[in-house]
Write a protein that binds this DNA or RNA. Structure first.
Lengths: 211, 211
DNA sequence: TAAAAAATACCTAAATATCAGGAGAAATAA
DNA sequence: TTATTTCTCCTGATATTTAGGTATTTTTTA
């Protein structure tokens, strides 16, 4: 074990992927894999007691999403490099990840060569994207053009209940609020999503996996 | 290389997963991994010239879906055992896979122990499911229980326009129909889907990939 | 060709949602 | 602590959908 090897860890809810990455990285000269974790809680707990230089991070995790976890980690361990390795091709997710401090975004179906290259690049301090990701960023498709609106806790709650076909009356009763308040939230949701009514809202929200 | 080792191959659009599985399986006494392929075309071409006993098959592939590929392979190479290894949790996909000749269905987020056990079982000739899959099969969730309603051409048309947030007025103009006719279609859609309003309808329809 | 299904159109009334404002209280962040 | 956001509730007007129906025409299917 050399001193100057980068301590690297993998966070992914698929044990197979962790194994695969370990295998790939174990032959890299300047990388030392120090663990693999299946959840946000595990990696956070590990970080509190161990130094880590590079994290390969999935978006889909059982307890927290990778974007939020990325922000969380970067806020406490600034010098740790995070590279997102995910299946998600949504432009919004990619951009949000970078915004939250990730040093790059790779798709899991990248070739092995591509992965190696990108990891090597990220270590140098560059922001890297796999080729497929580059294309997504440069030519956003129709439904990816619209950004994912930032919803408040209440709005998410109301959105979910509207999607169940409930009226403002019913929702108000359920949340112990005036139906007028629910109407206000509806109004705000319509504005944030830039849609005309609840039907289009549910459509937009479900396309962006907010339901 | 022993004679009685099972010749095993992996088909998955993620190179990392292939590597991970290879790593896991290389220590198994009675398994010999003979290749990994990223597409349906590749494995089919390989099968024409090589004997394979066990295939670990993903559902998502670039050129063909795993269910169809499974059927294709089983129709020509009956003695080859196929084990589906996928992320898809839809009951319909699981059942269709088994119907098409797969010897089991595992989720990719299974633990490594579970994978080993299931593979070992499948080799014995049993049909195996990972624990999570068992649960999906035995207790189908709400939206998987309800049958997919049979829609007429007009109803699909109206549904799509409603999902765009259009009113009966607008839709009527667009289709050169009376808005009252559109209302009738709305009514029928609500009945067929057994929902309370358009919001819930769009939700149900989008969950069933009808949009 | 006859029967069934689909598509069309209408009516009345009630229920709900949408639009355009404002405005105070509570929680959060700087 | 101050500023900002979020949450709450309101008025009043308008638009739209929903829930009962009924009924004719067109298209499909047996």
């Amino acid at each position: 074990m050399q001193k100057d090897k980068l301590l690297t860890t993998i966070v992914d809810d698929h044990p197979i992927v962790i194994e695969g990455l370990k295998m790939l990285l174990q032959h890299e000269a300047n990388i030392q894999v120090v663990g693999g974790f299946c959840s946000g809680a595990e990696i956070l707990s590990y970080l509190r007691n161990n130094k880590v230089d590079l994290i390969l991070l999935d978006i889909t995790l059982p307890d927290i999403n990778g974007m939020d976890l990325c922000q969380l980690i970067k806020s406490e361990w600034v010098s740790t490099t995070i590279l997102i390795l995910s299946n998600h091709t949504e432009r919004s997710i990619i951009l949000q990840s970078i915004q939250n401090g990730a040093s790059g975004y790779l798709l899991k179906n990248s070739s092995i060569q591509e992965l190696r290259q990108c990891i090597a690049e990220a270590i140098q301090g560059n922001i890297v994207y796999s080729r497929a990701v580059m294309e997504i960023i440069s030519r956003p498709s129709k439904n990816q053009l619209q950004e994912r609106p930032q919803l408040t806790r209440r709005e998410k709650q109301v959105l979910a209940l509207v999607a169940e076909g409930k009226t403002s009356q019913t929702i108000g009763q359920e949340l112990f609020l005036s139906p007028l308040t629910i109407d206000t939230h509806r109004k705000n949701l319509i504005q944030k999503f830039n849609v005309k009514n609840m039907a289009e809202l549910i459509m937009a929200a479900s396309q962006q996996n907010l339901l």
